[in-house]
Amino acid sequence: MKAIVKTQKFLIIVIIINIAVLIHYPQIGKQSLIFTSKNLINFLFMLTPIFVCIGLLDIWIEKEVMIKIMGDKSGIRGVLISFMLGTLTAVPLYALLPVAGILLKKESKISNVLIFICSSSSIRIPLLLFEVSSMGWKFTVTRFIVNVFVVIAIAFTIEKILTKEDKKKILYNVNAL
């Protein structure tokens, strides 16, 4: 019981808040649950193929292969591959995280995984035309170019800040998932 409370702190707090709102403001509480159930369907729809894919990736791709592609010594090629993988996918941030987890588990370099997440969330090639149609060319192109530098800056800054201990902890962490 104590262990459940400790690991699921966040969920328990949110449930308590929801119940409190439901009692004091039934209108908002009900609306909230309607939104939640709608979103839950969207989430599950989005996440089902993602989790099937990472399960397959976990079984079929050897750690050694992944280390070669995106690992510590993958160099500029690893950076480019991560960047390409990221910009070609257009899924929400929450769906990217499980993929990031499996990449880390296969010992990809943390900066490469960050490049993947950051580029995928800010530069979405499949959505570029859509962005152009609502925001215009100038807006889209400027954002695209600046974001390329931002992605690189974020990934390398974090890689520099993290100590060896931190990285060990991350690896230990994802292996438990």
Partner: peptide, 23 residues
């Protein structure tokens, strides 16, 4: 199994988002 380990977190996030949207 990987899905189950993060499911509680997902549900918590959804409840929180639902609340924000409703409020």
């Amino acid at each position: 199994k990987m899905f189950l380990t993060v499911l509680p977190q997902f549900i918590a996030i959804l409840l929180l988002v639902g609340l924000l949207l409703a409020a």
